[in-house]
Amino acid sequence: MSDTEQTPAVPAQAGAPAVETVARREPLLEVDHVTLRFGGVVALNDVDFTLYKGEILGLIGPNGAGKTTCFNAMTGIYQPTEGQIRFRGQKISGKKRHHITKMGMARTFQNIRLFPEMTALENVQVGADAHHKTSVVAALLRLPRHWKEEREGREKAERLLEFVGIRHRMHEFARNLSYGEQRRLEIARALATDPVLLCLDEPAAGFNPAEKEELLQLIRQIRDTGVTVLLIEHDMRLVMGVTDRIVVLEFGKKIAEGLPVEVRDNPKVIAAYLGVPDDAA
């Protein structure tokens, strides 16, 4: 199979929100009444929501609301104290991290974590290797499978670098790339693992408005290739512009869930973001 391109399961109409079809869609990631405690600290308290295939879900909340904790629980880094997280119907906890990646979940990091001493191309190739089967012996003896996968991986990596717009920088060490390029490279690397679900942890942090706009475009393009996107962000404007649905966390609890418009007008959300005077509460 030379064509590794993702074909969308449901053709996404440009501009049409996926919301109306959500009911018919299959759940991809289920966060089922998850509580997570670190000693006495309750980082997540009975959080419960579902991510459906083909949508862009925004997970928002003020600083310290538990967004990244929730994210880490979803990607298998933390084990929930109570409740469970299911990805494509299977329980996440107890699975090896690289296995979760193979199941189709990929992520980027809030504080960029590339492989700094590898070139941009190699960074993406590492992601592409996730599905490669060349054994150590096959690599040592340069068996045909090595050449085949090496060629495929390289082509895929170049294609993805082209997609995120930094192909011209592919032989640069990751640490020499600009901040924005590094963010894009992280997305390319995550996409190289052929994800069904792409989790972006504050991908726009530190971006200026123009860069944010480009990022929105990119996220939409990714969704249009059939990848479901989970977006963690605290920039409300960015989230409103791109997501189909939004889940809001505050102090480790889900305080709202719904369409961007609904969430924006939700008094609880406004209170969480802006604060409310004591007498009003």
């Binding site: 990091f109 974590r113 590898m118 190699e122 590492v126 599905h131």
Partner: peptide, 14 residues
């Protein structure tokens, strides 16, 4: 090399 550079990230990249 990816393990040397960032073991956690390497794991999460499969």
């Amino acid at each position: 090399i990816s393990i040397r550079e960032d073991e956690d990230a390497a794991q999460l990249m499969g």
